[in-house]
Design a protein around this nucleic acid. Structure first.
Length: 716
DNA sequence: GCCGTCACTTAGTACTACTCCA
DNA sequence: TGGAGTAGTACTAAGTGACGGC
């Protein structure tokens, strides 16, 4: 962590999703949130796609103990062979100099493309799928798979980038995949109202099945959920149904629920052949709809399926939980592609809402959802050029912050003393964002979402000031619900001046009043913009996460450690970041059981080790008496056995420690979104840890740019 | 300067497919 | 070989922040 950046373990221990209820703010207005139709069409129509256009610390106890243990054996065999090909010595800059103009012949290239496509489209691929299933070979990580990865990947990071907001010049795709139509229930699956069988109309039946599918979920017991569901369900009923079905409590969905459970079981029990058939069909759909062509390159689409209808499941105490998420039809869909591409066709007898050609945006398909009125998009996979460039840019921005963060910190410390309240508030808020990695905290429309806050939207009730606590002075106790209604709980000692300011901000205020009443994210970001070009509140999160990882890796790992020890340390560094960013998860349902199993394994291994040691001892004694070759060999083999078991035991123990420490912490979020991948790549290269130990296949694809460009001496 | 809209990133969870071990 | 446990993936909600109009 940077400088005084510390956080409290209590953050995780007590962290959980909470259902606080809060009073409403006056300033919120009760407005219908509706989106107007898009306006800039004319402008968009003007877009040109000419090719000639420019291309432009609680861990410490464990840590020491485990390290000691792991140091015992250095798996020198684990040392990675230096397989990295020679690369440019200089680190490439994001704004790197333009390379040679690339020729762009944007004729519809769905068919032609990289070698991998040929593979996927060939009968050979189908055969290989079948073979895999037959052999039970994994279509995941591992040696077998590694061979299949195409040799030549497009290195977009070595090419020139577009400027002036142009995202692409050619874009062709097949449009979205719609949710399958509703299949009515078989006649033997019945719905009962007030104990009596009732045949539902298809529309009402479909919505009823959404509820039935969730019957075992806690959601369906919540009043808000039930109320919203029933209200929306009634809208789908015939007038006759409406008059009869007036009380949700009298509705009996149990047969439906049983039917879906049985279906799910049947799916699990399918034969290999049936499963293969489904797999192949999915693969076919993926091949047809899962890729697009963007500027002569075939790119993977992230979410090409339209969200199916169902019941809205908000997070936390969401006022709209249970509402009906309606079915999206072609008439709701806006297609975005280039003029000169082969436009996707709507299903027979239907029309798209609109086909537009806006190359200033990255999305392929969009529609407006009915719950919040927000727009949903189909976009490209994280491994695509368009996402990768943005990611790279994000980390470059964070690195720029690194260069001026001292000046910014000095400035906000100075501002704590300002005569102006708004400046003091801004400075204290920025201090929290920097020190605690809090999110900016945009204002939210009341009644539309769960009551969650970020830094700028903190209320008086979210903080408790302690002049002294647990032997520390000026402690601020935070307790609020952040994004996704994840609880943020932390006790932080702050500087006296911050403490005094907070007292001032809270003076004469009610608990539900804003802590920073003279501040919002727009004001804060405008100020940050003045301090550094492009700086916003969220850059601090990226910066602090990445710098923390780098510092922790330096602190925790040495080249003498063996690979498992290094990985344990990496996970601990990753964990420090996850704690800083408050990335939590619900403990896995099977956690206790799996820990028990692991402990059983450890105990058995210990016994096995004791046995092996005894055998070694007796073999030694035997060899001493006999003094022949045979007994010498026996001693050697027993020694090896002991060694092998010790290694196995160590591995299990490391696994147990790692799992225990990860119980409530989600490492994935920070790894994927906050940690400059070049830090991890450089660390792997420097310490001889295979990159596969840190990043799985998907992650390696996302971070291909970093894996290719970062050398072992890379510094964030 | 405020507000609404839009585009895009970040987030946790549910489900599925795979691995490993008896 | 089958089942339990887990890692990986798909899904989609919930944030951030830019921008334009009034």
């Amino acid at each position: 962590m940077s400088g005084d950046h510390s956080h409290n373990d209590s953050q995780i221990d007590s962290g959980s999703r909470h259902n606080d209820s809060h009073k409403h703010k006056d300033k919120y207005k009760d407005k219908e949130h509706k989106h107007k139709d898009h306006k800039k069409d004319k402008e968009r129509e003007k877009s040109k796609y000419s090719n000639s256009e420019h291309r432009d610390s609680s861990d410490k106890k464990h840590r020491d103990k485990d390290k000691e243990r792991l140091k015992l054996k250095d798996g020198s065999s684990d040392k990675q062979k230096d397989k990295h090909k020679e690369k440019k010595k200089e680190e490439r800059s994001f704004d790197g100099k333009p390379k040679k103009e690339k020729e762009n012949g944007f004729e519809s290239p769905f068919i032609k493309s990289e070698p991998e496509n040929d593979f996927y489209h060939s009968p050979k691929h189908e055969k290989s799928l079948k073979r895999e299933l037959k052999k039970g070979e994994a279509v995941t990580d591992g040696k077998k798979k590694a061979k299949k990865e195409p040799e030549e990947k497009w290195k977009w990071w070595e090419e020139e980038r577009y400027t002036d907001g142009v995202k692409w010049k050619f874009l062709e795709h097949k449009g979205p995949v719609f949710a399958p139509p509703y299949e009515p229930l078989p006649s033997n699956v019945k719905f009962y109202y007030d104990g009596k069988y009732m045949k539902l109309s298809p529309g009402a039946e479909e919505v009823a099945t959404f509820f039935a599918k969730m019957l075992d979920h806690e959601y369906t017991t919540k009043d808000v959920f039930r109320k919203n569901f029933f209200k929306d369900w009634r809208k789908e009923m015939t007038s006759e149904e409406k008059s009869k079905l007036t009380d949700l409590n009298k509705c009996d969905f149990s047969e439906m629920s049983e039917y879906f459970k049985a279906q799910s079981e049947a799916r699990k029990a399918m034969t290999k052949e049936e499963k293969l058939k489904i797999k192949m069909e999915n693969e076919r759909i993926l091949q047809e709809y899962g890729f697009c062509v963007m500027d002569n390159h075939k790119e993977r689409i992230a979410n090409f399926r339209i969200e199916p209808p169902g019941l809205f499941r908000g997070r936390g105490d969401h006022p709209k939980m249970g509402m009906l998420k309606r079915r999206i039809r072609p008439e709701d869909i806006i297609i975005n592609c280039s003029k000169d591409s082969k436009h996707p066709k709507p299903p027979p007898g239907t029309k798209w809402k609109e086909v537009r050609h806006d190359n200033k945006v990255t999305w392929l398909v969009s529609w407006t959802e009915n719950i919040q009125g927000s727009i949903k998009y189909i976009m490209l996979n994280p491994s695509s050029r368009i996402k990768g460039e943005k990611d790279w840019q994000k980390y470059e921005m964070a690195r720029r912050l690194k260069k001026c963060v001292d000046r910014i910190r000095a400035q906000y410390r100075e501002d704590w003393k300002s005569k102006e309240m708004r400046i003091r508030q801004r400075a204290v808020a920025l201090y929290f964002i920097d020190k605690l990695a809090l999110r900016a905290g945009n204002e939210k429309e009341e009644g539309e979402t769960a009551d969650t806050v970020g830094c700028c939207s903190l209320r008086v009730e979210h903080l408790t000031l302690h002049q002294e606590m647990d032997g520390q002075e000026y402690v601020v106790e935070f307790d609020f619900l952040g994004k996704d209604s994840i609880r943020y709980y932390n006790k932080v000692p702050v500087e006296k001046r911050v403490f005094k300011n907070l007292q001032l901000f809270m003076e004469d205020k009610e608990p539900e009043d804003d802590l920073f009443d003279r501040l919002n994210t727009s004001i804060l970001n405008k100020h940050l913009q003045e301090l550094m070009d492009g700086l916003t509140a969220k850059v601090f999160r990226t910066y602090n996460a990445s710098i923390t990882l780098q510092q922790q890796l330096n602190e925790l790992t040495t080249s003498e450690d063996n690979v498992p020890a290094k990985i344990l340390s990496y996970n601990r560094a990753n964990r420090a970041v996850a704690i800083l960013c408050n990335h939590q998860r619900a403990p896995p349902k099977t956690f206790e059981k799996s820990m028990q199993n692991l402990q059983t394994k450890i105990d058995a291994k210990k016994e096995q080790l004791a046995d092996a040691k005894r055998e070694l001892k007796s073999a030694k004694a035997d060899a001493k008496v006999r003094r022949d070759e045979k007994s010498k060999k026996a001693v050697e083999s027993k020694k090896k056995a002991v060694q092998r078991i010790e290694e196995q035991l160590m591995k299990l123990e490391v696994q147990a420690t790692d799992r225990e420490e990860n119980k409530q912490i989600a490492l994935g979020t920070s790894k994927l979104n906050y940690l400059d991948p070049r830090i991890s790549v450089a660390w792997c290269k420097k310490l001889g840890v295979p990159i596969e130990k840190i990043y799985n296949k998907t992650q390696r694809e996302k971070f291909a740019w970093a894996i290719d460009m970062a050398e072992k001496d890379y510094e964030f």
